[in-house]
């Protein structure tokens, strides 16, 4: 039940987390997944991550470049577009306001 709920929370904010993970510069799928796992969000499988990356790219929030490597298959690198940055700034502040409200209610509930 706890794991299900965590997955549900993540579903609502994963696109913002992906955008936020690219503010420092471009990255690729597995590296994004590792960045989010290292941040304490748990392992995000490729089956969850790639559909989100696709949606963000189709919405013009991410730009991609496919690069062939010397050894092994090529990789697709993702970077934020200007629209992606604007969207992240706007949506992140909305999420934080929502988080603040949730926190206030839960804190009050625990104290009661």
């Amino acid at each position: 039940m706890a794991a299900d709920r965590r997955a549900s929370w993540l579903k609502g904010v994963l696109d913002l987390l992906v955008l936020a993970s690219l503010t420092e510069g471009e990255s690729y799928g597995y590296e994004i997944s590792k960045t989010l796992a290292d941040a304490g969000l748990g392992q995000i499988k490729g089956g969850t991550l790639y559909p989100v990356l696709n949606r963000l790219e189709e919405a013009g929030l991410l730009a991609t470049e496919f690069r062939v490597t010397e050894r092994g298959p090529g990789r697709r690198y993702y970077r934020l577009t200007d629209l992606g940055r604007e969207t992240l700034a706007d949506q992140a502040s909305r999420w934080l306001a929502f988080d603040e409200s949730v926190r206030a209610v839960l804190t009050k509930g625990r104290a009661g």
Partner: peptide
């Protein structure tokens, strides 16, 4: 497919387990 193959190689995971 190339990108996902690289992902699977780097993570060492079984593709079905990783991508569903």
């Amino acid at each position: 497919v190339d990108d996902l193959t690289a992902y699977a190689q780097e993570s060492g995971a079984d593709p079905e387990e990783e991508f569903g």
